[in-house]
Each structure stands twice: as C-alpha cells, then as structure tokens.
Nucleic acid binder design. Sequence first.
DNA 1: TATTTTTATGTCAACGATTGCAGAAGTAGC
DNA 2: GCTACTTCTGCAATCGTTGACATAAAAATA
Lengths: 357, 357
Amino acid sequence: MSTIAEVAKRAGASTGTVSNVIRGTVRVSPALRARVESAIRDLDFHPNEIARSLKVNQTYMLGMVLPDVTNPFFPLIMRGAEDRALERGFLLVTANTDEQIERERRIVSALRSRRVDGILLTHTGGKDVDHIRRTIESGIPIVCLDRAPVGMKIDAVMLDNVRGAQDCVRHLIRSGYLTIAIITGPLQLGVARERLRGYEEGLREAGIEVCKDLILEGDFRENSGYRLAKDLLLQFARPSAILVSNGVMTLGVLQAFEELGVRCPEDVALATFDDLAGDRAFHPRLTAVSQPGYEIGARGATLLMDRIEGKVTKKPSVVRVAPTLIVRDSTRAQLSPERTPLIRNSDSYQKKALPSS
Amino acid sequence: MSTIAEVAKRAGASTGTVSNVIRGTVRVSPALRARVESAIRDLDFHPNEIARSLKVNQTYMLGMVLPDVTNPFFPLIMRGAEDRALERGFLLVTANTDEQIERERRIVSALRSRRVDGILLTHTGGKDVDHIRRTIESGIPIVCLDRAPVGMKIDAVMLDNVRGAQDCVRHLIRSGYLTIAIITGPLQLGVARERLRGYEEGLREAGIEVCKDLILEGDFRENSGYRLAKDLLLQFARPSAILVSNGVMTLGVLQAFEELGVRCPEDVALATFDDLAGDRAFHPRLTAVSQPGYEIGARGATLLMDRIEGKVTKKPSVVRVAPTLIVRDSTRAQLSPERTPLIRNSDSYQKKALPSS
DNA sequence: TATTTTTATGTCAACGATTGCAGAAGTAGC
DNA sequence: GCTACTTCTGCAATCGTTGACATAAAAATA
C-alpha cells in the first residue's frame, strides 16, 4: 500500500503538494498536477483515510444501529440513509441490536471508539438511555429513527403514528366494522403507545367506547401476533376487525387465521401497520398503514449530516412523516353497517362475552 | 473527547501503562489497574481506534458490498456476517451497488481508502474485475458471496446452484409436470448460468429434450418476471410448470398470474429460487429452492477473518453450500402423469406452438 | 533594474495511540 | 549488602496525512 511520500517521490514533488492535488483546496500548476495524478494512477494509490481522519478529526462514517435488518422495514431505512450518505461522501457502519439494550450499548460504544461522525439510531426501548446522552455530550450527534427514547430532547424522524392508527380506525368504522381489536407493540415503546392512542381516539371520535378486552399487547414479533390472534379469535365474541401494530406480527396473525379457518375479510377484517409485501402476493391483499421507510432514512441522514457539518444548530426536534393508508381487500367485506356482526360465531370457548359497544 | 494522556494523568500513571491496561497484553498490578479503570470510567474515555488503526495498521472493519439490501435475500447474509464479525471484534461497513459496476468500483475504492481489513463482496456481473484483482493485490482480501466473478481464482461462498435447479426439476417431473419453462437471471452472471445448467441437466436425465422457447432470460428484477411470465402465459402452448430463478422475479410472475387469471398450481405450477416469505402469506404457498443466506454470510465472514488473521493461507477456493428444496402447494396439482396437459388452453394469441416434448 | 506583490511549492510539527528501551524503585533471597 | 526480579515511568519513534508557515520563483509595478 503506497503512501503520499512515495507518490511525491515518483512525481518529483513534495508530500504537501500531493496532498493539495488530492484535496483540490490549494491550486497547483497544471504540469505538476498532471505528474502527480499520473503517479497516483501508476501506483494505484489510495490515500489513507485513517491517517486523514486522525489529523482532521473527522471520519466520514455514520453509524447505523437497527434492531434487525431482517425485518423488511429496516432495509428501506438503510437505503434511504445510505443514498444520502454516499452523495455526501459518507459511508455507513451498520449493526443490529436484536432489541437487546445491552447489545445496543456495546455497539454504540464501539462506534464511539471508531469515531464515527454521527449515529442513526433506532433505539431499543427501555429507560436506560445514559449511553445515548453521553455519546451526544461527547460530541457525536445522534438522530433517532422510527423510535425515540422517551423523555429526552433528541433529534428524531418518526412516523405520525397517532394519525396512522386514527386514519385506519376511521376507515374501518366507515366500512362498517364497529368492534375493532388492536394488537399493539410493547407498550414501553413510544411508537406502540402512540399507535394505541390513535386507535383510541379513532374510536372515541365515532362515539365508540374503548374496551380493554380488545386491546392486546404484543412485542412486535411474529409469534406474538400468532398467539394473540388465536386468543382473540377463540373468544366467545369475535371482533369484526383487527388492527395490527406492525407488519411482522401480521404474518403471525395470518397464520392464525389460516389455522383456525377464519376467512378474511368475510369473518374478520384485518388492517396492519407496515406494507411489507406491497400490492402483491399476500392473500387477501392487506389494507395497510404504509410507512415511508426510505424517506425516514433519507431525512434522518440528511439531518444528521447537517448537524455534523454545523449547518443545523437549532435545538433537537422531532420530524414527523405522514403515513399513507392503503385500502385493499382485507377490509372490504360486502357488509352493510346494519349487518355488521357484533357478536357472531358463538363458538363456545373460553373468555366472557364482550360488553356491547 | 479525552485521550490516553488525560486518563494517565488522572490515574497517576503513564500513558504506556494505560495502554497496557486497555490492551491487557502486559500485566499491571491490581492496584494500578483499578485506578486506571476508574479514571477511564470517570472520563467516559473511549480509546481512539482511529489512532490505534493507524499505528497497528488494522482497522477491525469489514466491507460488505451488496446489490441491494432491499432484496430480502441479502439481509440474511448480512446478519450471518455481522454476527460472526461482532464476535471477533469486527464491525461491518455496508454499501449497496444497485447492480451497477461503476458504483461497485467506487465503493470498493472508498473501502480501500478506509483501509478495511477485508471485503465481503456480492459482485455485480460483467468481466470488469480489475478493481477486485487490484484490491487483493494491495493486501485486502476479498471473499465473494453468492456470486463470483468468472474466470478468476478467488475465495467464494456460493450456493450449489446446479444442484438446486436440478433437484427442483426432478421434483417437477416426478409430480407429472413435463413441459417446464425457466425464467433465468441475466446470463452474464455465473449463478444464472448455473441454475440454467441444472435445469437442463434435470430435463436431460429424464430424457426430455431442452426446448429453447421455454428458456426466457430475465434480469433478476421483479419487472422482468412479470413481463416474461406474461409472454409465456399468452403463448399458444403454455408450459405446465415454471421455474423462476430468483424470488424477486417470482413476485412479478405472481402478479402476471393474477392479472391473467391463471390459477396456480391448477393451470400452471410454479417453483422458485429463494424462499422469501417462508411458509406463510403467499397464496399459493410456493415450492422453493431455499438458500441458506445466513450460513453463506456467516461462513464468508469466518473465512475472510481467518484470512485476515493469517489462519488460512491456502489458495483461494469456492465453498458450495447446499440448497434445500421445500415442496409446497404451488407444485401440487392433483394431476396424474397421464393427464399432464402438454398443450392446453389454445387461447389464440401470438407465437407458434411448441414442438411436442 | 530594483522592488514589491503574487503564486507555487517545500518543510515540518502535529493528530492519538503503540511499542521498545533505559532506568528508577521496590521486594525478596542469599 | 549484593544480586535478581518485578513493576512502573518517561521518553522517543512511528503510523500517513494535513495545513500553517517559510521560501523560492515568477509576475507586476515603479
């Protein structure tokens, strides 16, 4: 691996001049510049960014900390962030936390040691945010994506979750579904609470009482969707529609539908956050609150780099991006409101009947 | 951001001793070690890996170059690689090429400048592999994943594509499907050619002639699946089964089925490489040649780090991992071999009839 | 032509860690 | 008291760049 000194020797110039040619900051005569450039090509010289980083105290690397890239929502965020980053000469160092706060802490610490210029973080819940605070204090800005730690002034780009859930509930009600259940995410997560709030407000504004038997707390993982959907569908009184708080849980819910022979939307309608499969492949096609993942990543990265470069100096703020409700077959049973089955299919089974709503 | 010198001062020790405590290479008396450790905690000191990298000429970073994380096959590879990397103290720098060789070249160059210790590369086709050769010559090992550049001695971890396609074709034939079409990937890619070869060998060993009208070259993208499936289904003579060379194209194929009202597997059976959705959600459930993405990533990373640490010094070699054929509903029409419709549904339309096979 | 101004290039001390070495200080054995 | 260890300090050199400053050469001005 050649160095600037070797290039300088071969071009008959000084190291300073070579540096000037590379950086393009100081003008160099065309003749010398040409000699230097050809020496660079001949030697296949790649300037050592490590040395440069040490000197100028900037690495042009961004940390990207996600729960799990295997969840199809996150690759979108990654791409959005990466595209913006590459445009501005930054590279992404990525790592997955698997929703474990301890792993998150270790990763953030490793990124600090590597002196990344900033971190895009999808925080794993919990009130343990000391590592975040300290990282920011140490001079490494953090922008949270999709989720933000509660009770902390920090930059974040998030979905307008309340609105997403509320829009969806409105749509369900307008379509004649009045007994609507929700499978939430883990309620220590802000996102999960916001979606629940949107659901509640959607019901309230229609004058429907919120019934806590219809609120089931999941953990955003497939298995909890499966389990809770089974619980729900085996109840004496089935809801007429279910809103699921993320796409991965919905996969579990569909599995439960299948196993119990529940038809969707004829028996129970289904709406979900996240538009995993888009317009295809799922059967039935799912009504979804679509999150603009790419945009979240892109805006987060832009904000972060603007902070790094001092282009943004205002106080931390939360940017909300708008969800899109995509109505598809899973909420399109041909029901007139009158026929809406409040209590249908009294299959025997556990649990008490619902209070009429 | 504090330095080793500040820690030393606060602990009443020398910088060398602090370094020894951090590295753990030289023994330090318990009392001093404790003082140093508490100084580190007090100052929230994170040793500057950049400076260390410069000195020891190793960064503990691995480049991970993929076509597109948004294709659900790649996150699995990423996770496999990352899990192994983190265990051994390496971090991943990831970037997407979007299948553009120029972008791949720029990214590899940026990674070289950053002095990553090695690169995991899913190469975008084309014979332009000079950047790869030169990077390896410069001392940065590369392990190719899933695809390898043709005609080059290089480490690679890949699926046994021939076998995957062949197994699948065998299964189709045994199930009574004798007119089998294939939608291939771009044939300048080795993977695509291998899958095609497996298909051909599967037919040949059953004594079925390979018919080139049944071989359609796609580009591994959704749209080409859609387009080619439409072509195929509008032919005078439909095949009884289609083998699709990757999962993303299959999404397009399903779309085409839907639009044309073609039932699967009753009208045409479908088998695909990649098991995107697993056992759920798709309708019908798809017979798939499943690639162990996680394992490919994990083994690639292990091999790469072994090279970096000099634990492996043998000549470059290609590791083949075994595919798994998962048989599901999309190839389970209740056909007896006799009834197998070779030419069915003579819908008028373009193209000439197939030679009987 | 002499002098000033402008421009192009060379020189060298940092950046923060590692590593090796010379030597100081303390402990232990004889 | 002498020798042999052990543990630590202090110092210097090093990794490859950068960028302020010095200097030389060229151009402009008097």
